[in-house]
Design a binder for these strands. Sequence first.
DNA 1: TTGTAAGCGTTATCAA
DNA 2: TTGATAACGCTTACAA
Lengths: 345, 345
Amino acid sequence: MSETTDRTTAKRRSATIIDVAKAANVAVGTVSRYLNGQIIRRSNREQIETAIHNLGYRRNAAAASIRTDLTHMIGFLVPTFDEFHARMLEHLARSVRQTGRALLTYCHGGDPRIVAEALDFFAAQRVDALVMDGTAEVYHRVDDLITHDVPIIFYNNDVKGLAADRVMVENQKASYRIVTHLIDLGHQRIGMLTGNPANSSAVERLTGYEQALIEYGLPTDPALTVRGNWVYEGGYQATKRLMQLETPPTAIFAANYNMAMGALGWFKENGLRVPTDISLVSFDDVEIFRLLDAGITAVAQPVAKIADTITDILVERLADPSGSHNRTTLLECDIILRGSTRRLT
Amino acid sequence: MSETTDRTTAKRRSATIIDVAKAANVAVGTVSRYLNGQIIRRSNREQIETAIHNLGYRRNAAAASIRTDLTHMIGFLVPTFDEFHARMLEHLARSVRQTGRALLTYCHGGDPRIVAEALDFFAAQRVDALVMDGTAEVYHRVDDLITHDVPIIFYNNDVKGLAADRVMVENQKASYRIVTHLIDLGHQRIGMLTGNPANSSAVERLTGYEQALIEYGLPTDPALTVRGNWVYEGGYQATKRLMQLETPPTAIFAANYNMAMGALGWFKENGLRVPTDISLVSFDDVEIFRLLDAGITAVAQPVAKIADTITDILVERLADPSGSHNRTTLLECDIILRGSTRRLT
DNA sequence: TTGTAAGCGTTATCAA
DNA sequence: TTGATAACGCTTACAA
């Protein structure tokens, strides 16, 4: 019910710090000091407060940032808002907010041009720092930002060789453990749906799988690892390929949630039951894995921990921009055992 | 491998438009005009371009916005990043980006203080517009923004009485249709897991449910509608309550995805099979509903359409800020029939 | 088309 | 503590 005084003008000019100063009968500097929580004579404070209230004054963050070189905005760049990244976003937004900052999000959908665009945008917005899921093509453009002293934090996927902080999970170790679990159950032919090998996590998860096979003296048949590129359709097709092999695997390890869903989709269409006909395990633990028929055994990434760690690093780097931080934090994953695997007799 | 010249200084000062002008031997005005795509003498253009390249110049968006009163940022305020809002975010980010703008996201988790904080933040950042899932408590603070001529667009849930645009779905109609589907199958006792009645969509979905019962001459037993407050745990408890009734329902309609999952969780723990023992339908269509055993019959919201419509309105309002837009767009939902319902004999 | 210079809303310095 | 005033990096008249 905003009482409109003049709807014809393009845009109502909002009150400025000068207006406040005038109304409160003090100097702008005093108002600025008040705004920034410094000590102010009590009488002045009260006058300023009523002036702000009456004028409906809002500090203009852009004007402030132009002087302070601080925007209190953190760039957040992701390929997509799937389950994992959405949860990351939710946690990161929360922890970052508690430090008085907010997230400027950009979603590139795997398109390198949009990645470039996003990085330009973040540069123009002068974000205080950038949190991103690393992708290989960004090397030079991210290095640009680093040159401009923007702290970078990679998570989920790494881009080697850049002066950035990193928060990663033990991809290889977790994969190794979940695959050895399958081997312990008696599985000898284990298929894997792999991610895009351009991503470090895809490589590490594959390496963990191979390490398990090798350590247990199992043959590593190249036909058993099929690229699913992280997505549902890829997982579906890869599963199809695996199951149509002359001797199909008795168990499948999906490198992420979407591909596991693709596998389930193919199983369903072809009347295969988990775990009776085929065992399935997956990286990424999502709510439905708990609810599905037997429940899907999965690797649970510590999303909240990742977000908190990122925020800690953020705070530290922003407090001391001179420090040449360049640290990798490696977080453990849990293996959640459910009913999607069968013991082979 | 950013070659570091001086890592000890707090922050390297980035090149400004003045530096570019000097390097290119032109006036700042000329550079500004180049930056804004105006016509420039060819030789100057080339000199400016190489200067920008050599200096690694990036326009400072804050400095520009302080003059133009335009930030090209759209505030996006949501209660949570669940499936629905994550998909909204993904679509909206895409369509908004194509108009040269980006999203400043804030997630309030239902906490009124954080809502207020978010609104303050958006006001300070001078977002060009605000897109939000309406929640009752925000009335006055949002009205504040409207007074400052910030266009507001509500989606999903409405806040009545504010001068804002709205993009909603036909909640009542879709609920009516999915419940009549159950009735057509012979169900007479149909339970409903309702959302938070403070949200308009919760009310509308409940109304659709009641309308169906009434029109078909079925009794409306108050014990059959239980409040689940949108969340998993709420859906779980509400389902428990329904199924422990003296005469439990033969079918349940969940007002959203999370509560449907809660119902499934309770069913699983208690050995009930869908649809053999109980029929289940839900608002919100998500990928797993397709994959679950029999597949869950659900109402599919046109997420992409919602996002596109919001963007259209955004573009229109920003092009003509004087126009007093105040329009509600109502979008149709699809009912996706799957195997989660049983015909009652 | 270009150069000059006056803003934009803040913060920060320096005397008082 | 406070007031006055010079930045900050950009856009935009206005005159040339």
